[in-house]
Design a protein around this nucleic acid. Structure first.
Lengths: 203, 203, 203, 203
DNA sequence: CATGAATGAGCCTTCATTCAT
DNA sequence: GATGAATGAAGGCTCATTCAT
């Protein structure tokens, strides 16, 4: 019976993803998920305690791709612009691939305190890392020294992730990826003044 | 009885706002709103058809302050930096004043198609106006000519409004307003290269 | 204000009739009647206590035409066949004119004990009269002496009124009146053996 | 749990029948039916969608006995009078046994379009069959040739079924069955002139 | 573990009736 | 009398969760 159990659990996670994507987290019913998975309603509870629990399992499947609030800033050595460009592109592609799931995460975060908290903790770590990168670039004389590193990290990450949301989730039809990536990268580079540090100094 | 009717309607709108802010849109029950307003449950339906309808009434109360996805870009004549600074400040202050309501709107937009649509239409008008401003600044040689006006408008507006959300709604405690305003303004100015038109030309 | 009062009462009765005919007695709401009459809901209660009460008022308007469960049997002197023929025709015409109201009465009688009782009392008087006529015809040697007068009265009245219901209320489209009248009259005459008194005697 | 399911469904149908008979279709509440059946309110919905649905199930139990609007006319070969007599008796007995249910059906037919339609379709088939029998008797020179077969079928069927309603449902106390059967049979035979075909010809 | 009916708390909604103006 | 909002009892229905088989 072990095999059945594993199979049913997987079926439930897959079904939950489809149902969530189709109906949204709030409107999704346990019943629908069980039906979609082709198992009895009662069997749901052999594997998950609640809607929250399946949702966590669904999210775990795409964990890595979607946790970041935006692309990472370059380490000191690399060519900053190239790194930002690559990161933006990668992020937008991942976002677009999981657009419906991202909308879902958005909804759940507004509805469920536990997920809101989880999300906050994860992005805090990320923002902190990015803030350190900003500081590093400033010390190296490569970025606008006037900018507050933490707030800059927040604002730019936010700009990318929310633009992706607007473009791929709200956009009907979804916006083209490449022009958006190009614009975001240029805005980011401009915003940090990565391209013109010495000139800035001259002024 | 005209007076009672007006009073009760107002009481319901006020109660709805409190209940929504306290429990969220999804968890709020008509029953709670009526109780909070001190009227019979049935009376709710004398004034509103549904939760959606009261929510619309609640929103109408703060309409103007909250419609914008971010600050407006300056008209051609004015000092661009000063205008952006003022707009950002005004926007952030309005946002902070209605922080709970903004969180609410966020939730409702993810849950209710009608509000999502309404929001889309409103921000579209705003983004268009901002895109025109970007184009004007580019023609005047004041802004980075490489930037796509529409996408830039989207990204920068998004950056401000979402940073406000992160700072005032998710932030615990809420972030300080002025450093955020200063950072956003500087990022915006940098991003457009408003402060360094000649330098851009040199490149 | 007297005039207004009279006018409103009349408006309510007329509106009630329309609403009842349109929606049926059970589904009709006081609210609908007041709306249809163009008066405030509360005004309904200035004139009537309940749905029953308006219904009684509506019925009073067509009282005479609709109370009979079927046509009356002839008095001794007249030509029995001619009298029955005339009565059937008159009854069917009245029924058809008020077909929707008759359907209504049918419904109310199944739903409301008070009207069921009222109807029973009224038709009892009528049936008794008819039974007396049967008895008279039997004594005069004009009708089948084997027939039980009361049950015959019931059966034949019932046949006419229920056929009218089937023809004009359930029938879609409503049946033609004259062939039905002719058939009912002939059945009635045959059933009583009015046309063949001597033959009956011979048996 | 299969056994429980079957048992509860049966309990609900039985309870529904009792509640319907006691309170009428319109006044019956789902709650009462569930209580009467001794199951939780929610369980009702495991088995039926609506009041209509249980009612259909209740009716299905006595289906055959009650579908006919009256007794069937004899086939050509048999002794027509004996057949009619037997059919009337059988019909009246069935009717009396289910008198309360018949009252119910009466009410539901006035209130619910779906059941009205169902009933119409069923009785149409029956009436057609009877009309064919009348025509056959007429061709065989055994029945009054002046009668319209369809309308005669309607009128006589109607007479029997409605008399049964008056006698057993409205009658308080219910009328005796046998005299009614005798009278109806004689009226029917007379009406068709089954007993005196040659005499009719003489006239 | 799977099954799927049973459970019952909970919420929405309707509508007859009242009543202050 | 007219008005129409307020009232609140009443019922329908949903759905997460339990549990006997």
């Amino acid at each position: 019976m072990r095999v059945d159990a594993v199979r049913n659990r997987a079926a439930l996670v897959g079904a939950a993803r489809r149902v969530f994507e189709r109906d949204g987290y709030v409107a999704a019913r346990i019943t629908d998920i069980a039906d979609e998975a082709g198992v009895a309603h009662g069997s749901f509870y052999s594997h998950f305690d609640s809607k929250q629990a399946v949702f966590a399992a669904v999210m775990a499947e795409v964990e890595e791709e979607m946790l970041h609030p935006g692309p990472a800033l370059p380490a000191a050595g690399a060519d900053p612009v190239a790194v930002i460009e690559a990161a933006n592109l990668a992020y937008l592609e991942a976002y677009r691939r999981n657009a419906r799931l991202m909308a879902l995460l958005e909804q759940v975060a507004t509805v469920d305190e536990a997920f809101r908290e989880l999300r906050r903790r994860r992005s805090a770590a990320f923002l902190e890392r990015n803030a350190r990168a900003v500081r590093r670039l400033q010390r190296a004389g490569l970025a606008d020294p006037e900018l507050d590193p933490e707030l800059t990290s927040l604002a730019l990450s936010t700009m990318v992730s929310r633009s992706a949301y607007a473009a791929f989730v709200l956009g009907d039809p979804p916006a083209a990826l490449e022009p958006l990536a190009a614009t975001l990268t240029r805005l980011w580079v401009n915003a940090l003044r990565l391209g013109a540090p010495r000139i800035t100094t001259k002024e």
